[in-house]
């Protein structure tokens, strides 16, 4: 498994606190800065084999702001793309002069394989249900801005955790950063095993008074999640974040969501657009955080 900076960022698993905080510091240094030329001449290729808007645009913008050239590959997502052609695609783009790959794929080992096949650093932009490391770091950065620290914060991750690569990234990194996680949802949405040894709860209302952060996830119907629970409004009733539940939070507690949101299901308008919401801060931090990860992977000194 690739862990060193020279290998990009395939997984957060096993990364030390120093490296994680170093990335957050570097990202913070990019906030408000306009244009840099530290990666002038480098070619960053975004290879997205799954639909994405905000993540791809955010990587694109981050690479441009570092002065890198961006090649975008968005294969015809309507046709079935097999792993074999995935390999051919990576080899072709390597031969065309890619210095760094940003990969999104439905296969769990796609980023590892892209690194192996290309010999280039790879940034995992979301693979399978496994991890979405830059989203996790964005959320850590956003929380650090809000609270001034991460150590000792309590976060409830609520929703379709079983299908969520965002949640798995959080599970690999947030404990290292001192954040205590509780997974909350109906049993069909909770991981069927708990290798992380974190707290698990099926009752959201029991958790709300204890946490600093409520992190909401959407139900991933494209991964069959809708068949795991009744097809009525019971999910929103039991787990939807609404004004009433907002009032059960501690005064300083915040609400986050990695998007895209399903308003009226896991989150109500009053919460998404309310003053406790950090959702737009998360989006804003996407570009500087991804600048930091790209610059680190390509050895820029910052």
């Amino acid at each position: 498994m690739s862990t060193g900076p020279q290998h990009g960022l395939v997984s957060l698993r096993g990364l030390g606190r120093d490296r994680l905080e170093g990335l957050l510091d570097r990202a913070q240094s990019y906030v408000g800065s306009l244009v840099s030329s530290e990666l002038a001449g480098a070619t960053v290729t975004t290879a997205f084999f799954e639909a994405s808007t905000r993540t791809r645009l955010s990587f694109d913008r981050a690479a441009h702001r570092l002065g890198a050239h961006v090649m975008d590959l968005s294969p015809d997502l309507s046709s079935t793309t097999k792993g074999e052609s995935f390999k051919d695609t990576i080899l072709t783009l390597t031969a065309m002069g890619t210095d760094l790959f940003v990969v999104r794929h439905w296969l769990a080992d796609a980023a590892d394989l892209a690194a192996e096949w290309s010999g280039r650093p790879v940034i995992n932009a979301g693979v399978g249900r496994r991890e979405h490391p830059t989203q996790t770091l964005i959320d850590a950065m956003t929380l650090r801005q809000e609270f001034g620290h991460l150590d000792g914060l309590r976060m409830a991750i609520v929703g379709d955790i079983r299908n969520s690569r965002v949640a798995r990234g959080h599970l690999e990194a947030f404990p290292t950063l001192g954040v205590k996680l509780t997974l909350v949802g109906p049993t069909p949405f909770l991981p069927n095993h708990n290798p992380w040894g974190v707290r698990v709860s099926t009752e959201l209302d029991d958790e709300l008074g204890d946490v600093d952060v409520v992190y909401l996830l959407r139900i991933q119907n494209e991964r069959g999640a809708s068949q795991a629970i009744p097809a009525d409004q019971s999910y929103a009733r039991r787990y939807g974040m609404n004004a009433e539940r907002l009032s059960m939070l501690k005064p300083a507690a915040v609400v986050m969501h990695p998007g895209p949101m399903n308003r009226g299901v896991e989150i109500d308008d009053a919460v998404a657009d309310g003053e406790r919401s950090l959702i737009l801060d998360q989006v804003a931090n996407g570009v500087p955080l991804r600048m930091a990860v790209i610059a680190e992977a390509l050895g820029g000194t910052g």
Partner: peptide, 15 residues
């Protein structure tokens, strides 16, 4: 196998 490793890697399990 649906177990610790499949849960961690997010791979669909065979119970």
């Amino acid at each position: 196998h649906e177990g610790m490793v499949s849960a961690r890697l997010g791979i669909a399990g065979l119970p």
